[in-house]
Design a protein around this nucleic acid. Structure first.
Lengths: 127, 127
DNA sequence: TTGATTTTACGAAAAACTTCGTATAAACTT
DNA sequence: AAGTTTATACGAAGTTTTTCGTAAAATCAA
């Protein structure tokens, strides 16, 4: 069965998804408090976003208790993969390699991180 | 001297910038034709975008001849770096490494590409 | 030179995204 | 139970981004 296409989250929606991924299922209040650590956001604004996201099937919610508990409905890694694919296309003309080279080059990687990459490369060469 | 902050290009603006980077200074007609290879776009729509971009200083133009010639006013690599930084923050919570790992993992890299990365890693370890 | 074509300028509609006010209902508080 | 607080629902206003119609100017062709 074909999976219903779920729309790409907007920037604000992604912020909320990231909180839900990080903290697990949460109330609007809790998400709103987290958002406010970064930037002033009205409670009803956050509520509205989460209702829109519910509509778009980006989240589900449990309405057993008075304060509804929202839960991410899309997978973090898969979403990152999709967005990364778009980004590579839009910004790096489809060349994942030039993105990797830039990301690596612009970032002060620790020896451990470099080791991880080397391992991955070995695996890729091996197969 | 502080460089005047030039706004981040929108998605559509970026498409046009990519053409200007790739093909060099171009007329509206030429950009519009390129865009139309990917998706139907009205001529005046393209024109309007390029006028907006001029306004935002994303491009400059030469008006000597009747058909104005537009030129990217921002640097490709620098722009890619900026956008990449934002993207890493927004989607990968600031972890460039997890982005690199995903990008590498999701992409069938050729041996040559892997070699290039290995070289880069060596350089990074060396210093 | 007159009419057709190509171009720019401008404004504004349309669409997508963000923000919030207000109403209403539920549930604490005293 | 009455008043206060906390929640959701809903609509709509505000912004940003995208799209395009129309007019006017410049060029080209017969």
């Amino acid at each position: 069965m074909l999976k219903n296409k779920i729309p790409k989250p907007t920037g604000s929606e992604l912020e909320i998804l990231r909180l839900l991924w990080e903290n697990g299922p949460s109330s609007v209040r809790s998400v709103n408090e987290q958002l406010n650590l970064k930037k002033e956001t009205g409670y009803t604004t956050t509520l509205k976003f989460m209702q829109i996201m519910l509509d778009k099937k980006l989240v589900t919610r449990n309405t057993d208790s008075r304060s509804h508990i929202y839960k991410a409905a899309i997978n973090q890694e898969e979403t990152q993969r999709d967005l990364l694919g778009n980004f590579v296309d839009n910004v790096f003309g489809g060349s994942a390699m030039s993105l990797v080279m830039q990301a690596l080059g612009n970032h002060d990687a620790s020896p451990e991180e470099l080791d991880k990459i080397k391992d991955l490369i070995k695996k890729m060469e091996g197969k």
